[in-house]
């Protein structure tokens, strides 16, 4: 016997578990056995099938919470494994160094140096290709950070919290020790709280790091954890394809017409100065560029050069938006564009 409602619940659970297919199947199999036996018992007690199915499922509670509990266990296992591995690899490296220094013959060392030199030659030849690869790696990391996951940190040390996120989304992270030390932040001593189901990875990072006045950057696909101040210095240029949104932009032609008439006076009394040259627009008539400038970069001094709120710049070139901003604001822009496309806010 297999109830469709059970299947739906278990499928949803499987999707949220982020475990291997084998592990997911085992959990689903075990829970299905329980559901079916419970259903039999409830039916035998004279409850209608529909009610019995509903009750059997209700006893498992919210599917996201259940998935979070299972994932917490898997995470603890992974963490123990990582710690064991780290300890083991330190021993291996140490033993390895001892062995190499004892048995290293002279001519092999020379060969090693030659091989190194060859590798460096190749590296300079492929510099252009390397740049493209770096951008691809960053894009891959951003894609991973656009996935969703569940966190439950209760005064977790920052380094543990980051390790959890890194494992969850299969990333690499590095702590900018110098900057963090200068600001008196010790990742193993600083606690963070976060308890949310099904949130994007980039948001997870933002919410965790903002608690300790930190932020992240992407370099060659690696998540660099540094102070908020340092991150604000680092602008990243990205080009957004927005043909679909701009095609429906009612303001584009209006903007061009307005430019011919010159800028209107700012209405100081109404406190509209921050709206700049487009202060006379009603909110529903914003252009995409203006919409992005007003909706993002509101934290600290991460805003826009034109409005005097930060270092960012944004230009439209045909169907593309060319944006020079911090990683954090880029992720805000990405979220905004996604919401505009789907009509759903994240």
């Amino acid at each position: 016997m297999s109830e469709r409602e059970f299947d739906a619940y278990l499928k949803l659970l499987g999707g949220l578990l982020r475990l291997s297919p084998g592990q997911r199947e085992q959990i689903a199999g075990e829970l299905r056995d329980h559901m079916e036996e419970r259903l039999d018992a409830l039916l035998a007690a004279g409850i209608s099938r529909e009610e019995a199915v509903a009750q059997a499922l209700e006893e498992f509670g919210d599917v996201a919470a259940l998935a979070a509990s299972f994932r917490q266990i898997a995470w603890n296992r992974k963490r123990r494994w990582i710690m064991r591995c780290t300890a083991a690899s330190i021993v291996c490296v140490f033993v390895g160094i001892l062995a190499i220094s004892a048995f290293w013959p002279g001519d092999q060392q020379a060969n090693g140096v030659l091989a190194n030199a060859r590798a460096q030659g190749n590296a300079s030849q492929s510099e252009a290709a390397g740049k493209q690869e770096t951008e691809d790696r960053n894009a891959r990391t951003r894609l991973r950070l656009a996935q969703r996951g569940t966190v439950d940190f209760d005064q977790a040390p920052l380094d543990d919290a980051i390790e959890y996120i890194v494992t969850l989304f299969d990333l690499q992270a590095h702590f900018d020790q110098t900057e963090l030390e200068n600001s008196g932040i010790d990742p193993s001593e600083t606690g963070v709280d976060l308890n949310l189901n099904d949130i994007r990875g980039d948001m997870m990072l933002d919410l965790v790091l903002s608690q300790v006045d930190c932020a992240y950057l992407l370099r060659d696909g690696i998540v660099i954890i540094t102070t908020r101040e340092e991150a604000e210095f680092q602008l990243v240029l990205r080009v957004y394809e927005c043909g679909d949104l701009i095609a429906n932009d009612p303001i584009y032609s209006q903007e061009i017409a307005d430019e011919a008439f010159g800028e209107e006076e700012l209405d100081l009394e109404c406190g509209m100065t921050q709206l700049g040259s487009t202060s006379h627009y009603r909110p529903e008539e914003l252009s995409l560029v203006e919409l992005i400038k007003r909706s993002t970069g509101k934290d600290g001094s991460q805003g826009w050069e034109e409005s005097g709120t930060g270092p960012g710049t944004i230009y439209r070139y045909n169907d593309k938006l060319v944006v020079n901003q911090t990683e954090k604001v880029h992720s805000e822009i990405e979220g905004l564009l996604e919401s505009l496309r789907t009509g759903v806010s994240r």
């Binding site: 006893e59 603890n76 296992r77």
Partner: peptide, 15 residues
């Protein structure tokens, strides 16, 4: 002991 508590608990004890 609700099912939603029991199974994670069993898996933790096994872990």
């Amino acid at each position: 002991l609700p099912a939603g508590t029991l199974y994670p608990l069993l898996h933790k004890l096994e872990e």
